[in-house]
């Protein structure tokens, strides 16, 4: 049987169109546009090719053994070298060509040590305008091993938040040591020697009980007031409230 010529021609044209589509689909369009696996793999690839700028603290150790071991022993042991010196991967690769940055400016340390009421209690904070002004911090403190030069006598050096809170409270005139007895060691290595804390209702009663001596302290009935709860379960001792 003979296929009519117009059918043959039509078949050729159809074949050409199909061929064209297949060509575009499988040859011209990059596979990564069609296959998810491929485009994801190439994204991962691109991601991995990104340059590393922070070498990581172990990298500095190899060449700066002395500084590293000093930092690891001191108060700054959790700090990363590059947290202060900035990204130094290029310096670590090529120490002679690339000079690292060192934060010698007085503005730098208060980023972490300036007083801020949102900071956790016990984190060493200072008031940058009042604490030995003008001179750069590193004239007195070694940035790699910042020991408090003399053990701070003031509780406020470390408990700035409590100090500032108490200072505006009705307990402002009470010394910290009225309520806490503090071993000297606590001021040097705070976590190795703990101060005492009041532990009975009777302690506060020493000033606030009906028979207590201090005249200026408002009096309450110790037997009923607050029930069986400890006073500081309702009143924060560093900022007590009662009269509104």
């Amino acid at each position: 049987m003979r296929i009519p010529e117009q059918i043959q021609r039509l078949a050729i044209v159809t074949a050409v169109i199909i061929g064209g589509v297949l060509l575009v689909r499988f040859v011209l369009i990059p596979r990564s546009l069609i296959s998810d696996d491929l485009h994801r793999a190439s994204t991962v690839q691109r991601e991995l090719a990104k340059p590393i700028k922070f070498a990581g603290s172990t990298a500095c150790q190899d060449c700066h053994e002395d500084v590293s071991s000093r930092v690891r022993k001191g108060y700054h042991k959790n700090l990363s070298c590059e947290g202060c010196h900035g990204p130094e991967a290029r310096h670590a690769e090529n120490p002679m060509e690339v000079k690292p940055f060192a934060p010698r400016d007085r503005k730098f340390c208060p980023l972490c040590h300036g007083y801020d009421p949102s900071r956790p209690t016990g984190f060493p904070q200072i008031n940058p305008t009042a604490h030995n002004p003008i001179k750069p911090c590193i004239t007195c403190h070694n940035p790699h091993d910042p020991v408090p030069l003399t053990a701070p006598q003031e509780c406020s050096a470390c408990h700035a938040q409590i100090q500032r809170t108490k200072a505006v409270s009705s307990h402002a005139l009470l010394q910290c040591t009225t309520c806490h007895s503090v071993p000297a060691q606590h001021k040097k290595t705070p976590r190795s020697a703990w101060p005492s804390k009041p532990d009975t209702r009777a302690f506060c009663g020493g000033c606030h009980g009906k028979e207590a001596t201090p005249k200026d302290a408002p009096k309450i009935d110790m037997s009923t007031h607050g029930g069986r709860f400890l006073c500081w379960q309702c009143h924060y001792p560093h900022l007590p409230e009662g009269r509104g």
């Binding site: 991962v44 590393i52 990581g56």
Partner: peptide, 23 residues
């Protein structure tokens, strides 16, 4: 944020974790 994918795959910490002073 990619968790610093290019770092963690090579065994480094993400940059933010690397510099955090208080862990």
């Amino acid at each position: 944020c990619t968790f610093c994918y290019h770092r963690v795959v090579k065994g480094l910490l993400p940059a933010c974790v690397e510099v955090c002073p208080t862990q």
